[in-house]
Amino acid sequence: MTTRIDKRFAALKAEGRPALVTFLMGGDPDHETSLAIIRALPKAGADVIEIGMPFTDPMADGPAVQAAGLRALAAGATLVKTLDLIRAFRTTDDTTPVVLMGYYNPIFIYGVEKFLRDADAAGVDGLIVVDLPPEEDEELCLPALKAGLNFIRLATPTTDDKRLPAVLANTSGFVYYVSITGITGSAKPDPAKVGAAVARIKHHTDLPVCVGFGVRTAEDARAIASGADGVVVGSALIDMVKNSLDGAGKAGPSTVKAVTGLVAELACGVRAAKRVAAE
């Protein structure tokens, strides 16, 4: 089955450039502003949109993503409303791939079968669930693949060659290479090491490999994207949301523009990257 994700990466390959993958928290800082941001992302240069499903206890995330999740929850976010965001986005955009990213408990409580049905109907293309390693594939990964959704797995510096085949076995859409051992938004990755790691992963799979964690500027994006099929930027965009809020934590007139401004810069960086490792 070909998803929007497969189509998008095939088109970018033909175009000869890597993808810009943007991550923002669904419902941050509120539902309406979040929808306005998501709607503005493709035009600003986002090729793939990742939307975080807010969770109270995000064990692999740094302070920026933690705070974004808590802002969204305080503004009334739920998994139902996150799916509403995607459904609303799809009324104006039927081509940009959307990936939901988060933790398993809210999905488990929603009900796996119902969630997969509703996510597919809303126009979600793929899932990244941080706390579901291949050892727990029966929980969500296998049912998701059966339902026609991509299940995108994280590979990390601790995923050695012996373990990589297990990690890649049921992965589809793309592989998300976590460039550092650490939480989101922390240390800056070393582009040379990242390039080598992407090459190592590509030895085991034909899937596109996108790199995330620690990418903040257009220059970071260019450097990292040079050795990969795509670059993921999250905490830096979330910081733009946070910094645009007024004293009461409400979105201001500049919130959407603050995010799309950085996305446009990052898109320039990505477009300046030459594809090397992707071939």
Partner: peptide, 12 residues
């Protein structure tokens, strides 16, 4: 029970 952890921790 089970092993619901991020991939980084799985090898550990």
């Amino acid at each position: 029970g089970g092993r619901f952890v991020a991939e980084t921790l799985m090898p550990l």
